[in-house]
């Protein structure tokens, strides 16, 4: 995997596998979705996350999942749930903004859609 590594979330759609990272404390590199060919394992592109929290000392991605709309949903723990169209323009929106964490800390980690389309 490309530097800085620490792959965390993973989701498959069609002929591609999507991997989210980096996920490790102390890593401040750009959060990104890496895309690979499912059959060959070849790297085929990436989708850098365009949102970050200026008040957070870290960036990163934890888990990802595809929604019923075919878009990819990714947790940036210091921002919110980011929805990616996975298109050439790297279109993204904040689907759900997280509240400020309590003094004891917060770590949004994994996500799943129910049959009614709720995360």
């Amino acid at each position: 995997m490309p530097a800085p590594g620490y792959p965390e979330g993973i989701a498959i759609r069609g002929k591609h596998v999507y991997v989210a990272g980096p996920t490790a404390f102390g890593i401040t590199a750009l959060a990104v979705i890496w895309r690979y060919n499912l059959e060959s394992g070849a790297f085929t592109g990436q989708f850098p996350i365009t949102f970050s929290n200026p008040n957070a000392s870290m960036r990163g991605l934890s888990c990802i999942t595809f929604g019923p709309d075919g878009k990819l949903y990714a947790i940036e723990p210091f921002v919110g749930v980011i929805r990616l169209n996975l298109d050439a323009a790297n279109t993204q929106q904040i689907y759900s903004a997280f509240p400020p964490p309590p003094p004891t800390g917060a770590l949004p980690n994994d996500l799943a859609f129910d049959n009614d389309g709720r995360l």
Binding site: I75, V81, Y95, S96, P101, P102, T104, G105, A106, L107, P108, N109, D110, L111, A112, R118, L119
Partner: peptide, 12 residues
């Protein structure tokens, strides 16, 4: 959606 440090599950 899980929050590992707060020990809770959110719904969006």
């Amino acid at each position: 959606m899980t929050d590992s440090f707060q020990g809770l599950i959110y719904r969006i």
